[in-house]
């Protein structure tokens, strides 16, 4: 069945390879039904897109393409992409990596798993990044690390805040230790930006895991999250294997993390732009608000 086949059912979101959401894309008609994983309603894919990938009935938040997300959040016409042409290469001779990169680029229509740039939100200029689930599950290799590092360096140089939408399965295995090192590299850039007194707000999306959770996703001044997002260091399957029991319902959800004190607020997608705008406004320094 076409409707069911569109979303293969992985046990959890980390098990999906990231390309499953759009696997059927090239050879199927435009209008498709998508079954909401939460309320089981069938939604027309165009309607889902128009509703910014949120189920109109139960408000389940589906993954949003990285570029659509930036265009949705930023003021119209304000986004200028940086390092758009940077692409990954097989640095350590890992089997099938090159072909995986090609497939990911085709599936996502993007050059890498993160899009970076400068934009304004509600008139406030900022640096912004957004991660792409359809590019190898948003995994962080050297290019993702380099792009994010450069963005924080640019933000520091220009005295701008950074708004970052994180969505990633973690470090990219196919680049071995070099991926792991990107955790330290991006952390260094975040730390330097912060030490200069600049604001960094992360918005943790579904899923944010592994080396991304354990680096720049959790290093923000303010951490927001999308409703229902899976946010973890170790994924649910790994934990279930370790402790040999099922995890309780809602464990590692955005709401759970807020309850445990690791997230400042859970903000629905429809309210994110307004929230970000207000936070940017509230972080104005005296020379900024007194000058107006």
């Amino acid at each position: 069945m076409l409707k069911r086949g569109l979303f293969k059912k992985p046990k959890n979101v980390l098990e999906s390879s990231g390309d499953s959401t759009n696997k059927a894309a090239p050879s199927v008609p435009d209008a498709l039904f998508i079954t909401c994983k939460q309320c089981k309603t069938q939604i027309i894919s165009d309607d889902l897109e128009k509703n910014n990938y949120v189920c109109p009935l139960c408000t389940k938040h589906f993954p949003m393409p990285a570029r659509s997300r930036i265009l949705f959040m930023a003021d119209e016409g304000s986004f200028v992409e940086t390092d758009a042409q940077m692409i990954s290469v097989d640095l350590i001779g890992f089997p099938q990596y090159t072909s995986k990169l090609e497939t990911a680029a085709k599936t996502s229509g993007e050059n890498e798993a993160v899009i970076c740039g400068i934009a304004s939100i509600g008139g406030f200029p900022c640096c912004i990044f957004s991660m792409e689930s359809r590019f190898m599950m948003g995994s962080m290799g050297t290019v993702v690390g380099e792009k994010i590092t450069r963005l924080f360096e640019t933000a520091q140089k220009r005295g701008l805040p950074v708004i970052g939408f994180t969505l990633s399965g973690g470090a990219r295995m196919q680049e071995g230790i070099l991926s792991l090192m990107q955790m330290a590299k991006t952390s260094g850039a975040v730390q330097r930006h912060s030490a200069q007194g600049h604001l960094y707000i992360s918005v943790l999306c579904d899923p944010t895991a592994g080396g991304v959770t354990a680096s720049f996703a959790m290093e923000s001044d303010i951490a927001l999250a999308e409703p229902g997002a899976l946010i973890c260091f170790a994924g649910p399957r790994v934990i279930e294997q370790t402790i040999r029991q099922k995890l309780p319902e809602g464990f590692q959800s955005a709401e759970f993390l807020r309850e445990r004190g690791f997230i400042d607020e859970v903000v629905p997608r429809s309210e994110q732009k307004e929230t970000l705008q207000r936070l940017l406004m509230l972080h104005q320094r005296r020379e900024e608000y007194a000058g107006n």
């Binding site: 959770t213 996703a217 959790m218």
Partner: peptide
């Protein structure tokens, strides 16, 4: 996980 393994490592970095 409950006590923030990811946050603890990130803070260490």
């Amino acid at each position: 996980e409950e006590r923030g393994q990811g946050e603890a490592i990130a803070s260490s970095l």
